[in-house]
Computed example of a mutant assay.
Amino acid sequence: MPHKGTSPRTPDLFEYTITVPTPLSQRSTPPPRQAGVASLSDAQLVQNLGQLMDELRHRLEAGRGSRPELEAAAKQASLSLKRLIPGSARRDRPPRSSKTSSVLQEGQRKAVRAALLAGVAPNQVAKHFGLSLATVRKVLDESA
């Protein structure tokens, strides 16, 4: 969509924006793995992980006051470990059909209606909100 003049405006949800790639020197890269950790055997890795978890638990329990960096690290470690367990991702997520079968909340219904009135195709609205095309058409019929 062409911009009108040079005045700032809020971008549309469905508007295509051009992003400028960052130079290679500015991109964030994960820290390189230390040779010591990579060379550990599985048993040694498990032992070190256990010691790390024990120390983290000890510091969180013994610490007085807020320890946001330790709490964030514990939460991140928990999420990472959950992802490593085979099949756990499928058990944690609700079934995909539950979102579309539930009744739309009023805010979501208004957003769908606004997108449709703005001229966005129903199939694009359905993809964006994760709804079925029939649900989007039902919202369209209700607004008419």
Score class of each variant (00 low, 15 high):
1 M>I: 10
3 H>P: 00
4 K>R: 08
4 K>M: 09
4 K>Q: 13
5 G>L: 00
6 T>A: 02
6 T>D: 11
6 T>P: 00
8 P>Y: 05
9 R>P: 00
13 L>Q: 06
14 F>L: 10
14 F>K: 03
14 F>H: 06
15 E>M: 15
15 E>S: 15
17 T>L: 15
17 T>E: 14
17 T>V: 15
19 T>F: 07
20 V>N: 06
20 V>I: 09
22 T>R: 14
24 L>P: 11
25 S>N: 12
26 Q>H: 12
27 R>C: 14
28 S>H: 10
30 P>K: 11
31 P>I: 02
32 P>D: 08
33 R>F: 10
37 V>T: 12
40 L>P: 07
40 L>R: 08
40 L>T: 00
40 L>E: 11
42 D>E: 04
42 D>Q: 00
43 A>Q: 01
43 A>F: 00
45 L>I: 03
45 L>G: 10
46 V>P: 03
46 V>H: 13
48 N>H: 15
48 N>A: 10
49 L>Y: 08
50 G>M: 13
51 Q>S: 06
51 Q>D: 10
52 L>Y: 08
53 M>S: 15
53 M>E: 14
53 M>Y: 04
54 D>L: 12
54 D>E: 13
56 L>K: 06
56 L>I: 03
58 H>C: 04
59 R>A: 06
60 L>P: 09
63 G>D: 09
63 G>V: 04
64 R>T: 14
65 G>F: 03
65 G>H: 03
66 S>L: 00
66 S>N: 06
67 R>L: 10
67 R>W: 06
67 R>C: 04
72 A>C: 07
73 A>N: 10
73 A>E: 12
74 A>I: 02
74 A>W: 02
75 K>G: 03
76 Q>C: 03
78 S>M: 05
81 L>S: 04
82 K>D: 09
83 R>F: 02
84 L>R: 14
85 I>F: 15
85 I>M: 15
87 G>I: 04
87 G>Y: 08
88 S>W: 14
89 A>M: 10
90 R>A: 15
92 D>M: 07
92 D>K: 02
93 R>S: 13
94 P>E: 10
95 P>G: 05
95 P>S: 05
96 R>F: 03
99 K>P: 00
99 K>V: 03
100 T>S: 14
100 T>Y: 05
103 V>K: 08
103 V>Q: 07
104 L>G: 06
107 G>L: 00
109 R>L: 10
109 R>T: 07
110 K>Y: 03
110 K>H: 11
111 A>N: 07
113 R>H: 03
115 A>I: 01
115 A>E: 04
116 L>K: 04
117 L>V: 12
118 A>F: 04
118 A>D: 15
120 V>C: 12
121 A>I: 05
122 P>N: 07
123 N>Y: 15
125 V>S: 14
127 K>I: 10
127 K>H: 07
128 H>G: 01
129 F>C: 11
130 G>S: 03
131 L>C: 10
132 S>C: 05
136 V>L: 01
141 D>Y: 14
141 D>I: 14
142 E>Q: 12
143 S>R: 01
143 S>M: 08
